[in-house]
C-alpha cells in the first residue's frame, strides 16, 4: 500500500467469526490499514476498536450469537458507539426491525431501519452491477449481491448511501458509527468501503 501523507495507527478491527465469509473481511481490513482479528468470544470483543459483521446466513449467525451468550455484550458495544460495519447478513443483524424473521430470529440492532431478508430473490437471481455510492470518490462501485436483503424503510437519522437502480431499493446506509451494505465489498478487490469503515474506526479513537 502507498504511504499516506499522515502517519496513522492501525486500529484493531474485529470480524465476528461465528459463520460466513470471515477470511475475506479480515483480508480486506488488513489491506485497508487495520489490524484485523477474528472475534468469537467476549474477551476477543473487548480488545477491538471496531467490528465487522460478515456475510453468511443470518439465521445461523443469530443462533450462534444467542447460544454462546454474545448478544448482550454486542448490543452494549454497538449502542455505546463502537464503529460497526455489516455486509448482507451483517446488514440484517444491524437492523432495528425485521418484518419477516425466521422463527426465533432476532437482530443486534443499531440502525433505525427495517430490512427484508432475501428480498432480491434466490441464488439464481443473485447478481453484480455498478452502483453509485455516496461519499466514495472515483468510478462506480462494483457491487455483488447474493440472495441479498434490501432496506425497506429508514428513520430520519439514517443516511442512504446507495440505491439499486434496478429496483430503487436502498442497499447501503450509515447511521453515526454504523455502516451497512446489502452487497459484499469483501468479495471484490475495490477497498473503498472498507477504507471508509477503517477511517470511521480511526476517527472515533
Amino acid at each position: 500500500m502507498a504511504a499516506g501523507p499522515r502517519v496513522l495507527v492501525r486500529p484493531a478491527v474485529g470480524v465476528l467469526a461465528l459463520q460466513g465469509d470471515v477470511v475475506e473481511h479480515l483480508r480486506a481490513l488488513r489491506e485497508s490499514g487495520a489490524e484485523p482479528a477474528a472475534v468469537r468470544r467476549p474477551d476477543e470483543l473487548d480488545r477491538v476498536d471496531g467490528l465487522v459483521i460478515p456475510g453468511g446466513e443470518s439465521t445461523t449467525m443469530w443462533k450462534l450469537i444467542d447460544v454462546f451468550g454474545l448478544a448482550e455484550q454486542l448490543r452494549k458495544r454497538i449502542s455505546g458507539g463502537m464503529p460497526v460495519f455489516g455486509s448482507c447478513a451483517g446488514l440484517i443483524m444491524l437492523a432495528d426491525r425485521l418484518p419477516d424473521p425466521a422463527s426465533g430470529q432476532q437482530t443486534l440492532g443499531g440502525i433505525d431501519m427495517a430490512v427484508r431478508r432475501n428480498a432480491f430473490g434466490r441464488q439464481v437471481d443473485s447478481f453484480e452491477r455498478d452502483l453509485e455510492v455516496a461519499g466514495l470518490d472515483g468510478p462506480p462501485y462494483r457491487a455483488v449481491f447474493i440472495r441479498a436483503p434490501w432496506v425497506e424503510g429508514v428513520g430520519p437519522s439514517v443516511e442512504v448511501l446507495a440505491t439499486d437502480p434496478g429496483t430503487s431499493r436502498i442497499v447501503a446506509v450509515r447511521q453515526g458509527r454504523a455502516l451497512a451494505t446489502s452487497f459484499h465489498p469483501e468479495l471484490t478487490p475495490d477497498r473503498r468501503i472498507h477504507q471508509l469503515f477503517v477511517d470511521m474506526v480511526r476517527d472515533q479513537a
Partner: peptide
C-alpha cells in the same frame, strides 16, 4: 429491472456470484 442501461446492468450467474454464494456458507 432495466437491462438496457449501458455498463450498469445487473449480471447474473457470474463466477463471483456463484463462488461468493459458497463463501457465505463457510463455517457452517
Amino acid at each position: 429491472e432495466q437491462p438496457g442501461r449501458a455498463g450498469a446492468a445487473a449480471v447474473k450467474g457470474t463466477s463471483r456470484v456463484k463462488r461468493g454464494m459458497a463463501d457465505m456458507l463457510k463455517g457452517g
